[in-house]
Amino acid sequence: MDDSNDPLLTRSPHVDERLAPPETRVEYLHGQRLIVAPADEPHATLHCDLAHVVRAHVAPGYTAALDMLTRTSADSDFAADTSVFPAAPDPETGGRRLEEIAFEVASEQAMSVPTTKARELVRRGVRRVFCLVVEQQLTLEWSRENDDWARLPEDAVIEDRCLVRPLPVRASFDAASADEAVFEAILLKASAPIKQALTDARLARELARARKTVLATLEVRDLEIPDLVRVEVHRCTDIAQLDRWLRRAITATSAVEAIDLGGPVNDTEENG
């Protein structure tokens, strides 16, 4: 195919060369001037959640940005909602290097603009482009082969050299999944003291949940819970012990029997 008249190949502006005025809501797409409007819920909250998850997953040597303008051609200059690009400057220009991953947030009714942007970004050299569809809570990835979006399964993960660990697709749409994914990503990148602090924090959360479950089980069974039982449960720092107490609490005739204050736990009795 003859690309000699392709304006991008004959005159390729650097990604830092501006057509759109920075710090405004103006973008340019194939010469058309666009005004990027502020968002409302849930579109706006998804922007925040996406940035939260992506930033935590960025691998060493890369950095992330929000609404960062990228010059894709002579007549296009626009910003992806979230992007990941090499932290080191371009050795030839000293400016920013092209992003490797870009994310867009869109509504199902307005997919034409992110679709056109995806084509422009891929044509410029961006390796991967994703789109999060607000209403249906879908994650799409641009397919070069099909020149269209491909839907990712809800349980899929995004694996890439830009990311310190696989990024769960559902994380941007679910707060609990997002926090867990962010925790795991930060833990991988953290120094030894921070890793220990994060591990201790996770253990503390698990212990608190296990203690609460033991006491709640006794309460549901209408068993009286003496103060010495509550003290024993709250001071326990052994997840396995709390799990044994929970199993006993299901059938014990009293709270004291459940946590076996009279002596060590009889595992044979529990399992029989």
Rank of each mutant, 00 (worst) to 15 (best):
I259M: 09
G262D: 13
L246G: 02
A249P: 04
A204E: 12
I194E: 14
A255V: 01
H234V: 00
A252P: 09
I250N: 02
A192W: 13
D238E: 11
S191W: 04
L242H: 01
R221P: 01
R205A: 11
A208T: 08
T237Q: 15
P264H: 09
R202A: 13
I250A: 12
G263M: 12
L215D: 09
A197P: 00
V229M: 08
A192E: 15
I259T: 03
I250K: 11
T199I: 07
R247N: 07
A240V: 10
R230W: 07
L203E: 12
A258H: 01
E219P: 00
R247A: 14
I250E: 15
L242S: 01
E206A: 11
V220Y: 06
A192N: 05
D238M: 07
D238I: 03
L242G: 01
A208I: 00
T251Q: 07
C236V: 00
L215F: 12
V233E: 04
S191I: 03
R209Q: 07
K195E: 13
D227L: 12
T213Y: 03
L261M: 13
R247K: 10
D243R: 11
A197Q: 14
V214Y: 07
V220T: 10
R248P: 00
P193F: 09
D227R: 14
D227Q: 13
V231D: 15
T237V: 09
G263Y: 14
K195G: 13
H234N: 12
V229T: 07
P193Q: 03
D260H: 11
T213V: 09
D227P: 00
R247Y: 06
R247E: 11
I250P: 00
R209T: 10
R221Q: 01
D238P: 05
G263P: 06
D200T: 11
V256C: 03
I225R: 06
D260Q: 14
A197S: 15
A252W: 14
P193I: 04
V229N: 11
Q196R: 11
R221L: 09
L198T: 05
P193Y: 07
V214S: 13
E257G: 02
P193E: 08
A204I: 00
D222T: 06
L215V: 14
C236F: 05
G262H: 07
L246W: 03
E224L: 04
D243N: 09
L207V: 03
Q241W: 03
A249N: 09
A208G: 08
E257I: 01
R211F: 09
A204K: 06
A258N: 02
L242I: 04
L203W: 08
D227N: 10
R235V: 10
A255L: 04
A201K: 06
R209P: 01
P264S: 13
E257H: 10
T199Y: 04
L261G: 10
A190S: 08
V220A: 12
C236P: 02
A192L: 15
A192I: 13
R202T: 03
E224F: 05
V265D: 01
A190I: 07
T251D: 14
E224Q: 06
W245L: 01
T217L: 11
I225V: 13
V233A: 05
A201E: 03
Q241E: 14
L228P: 07
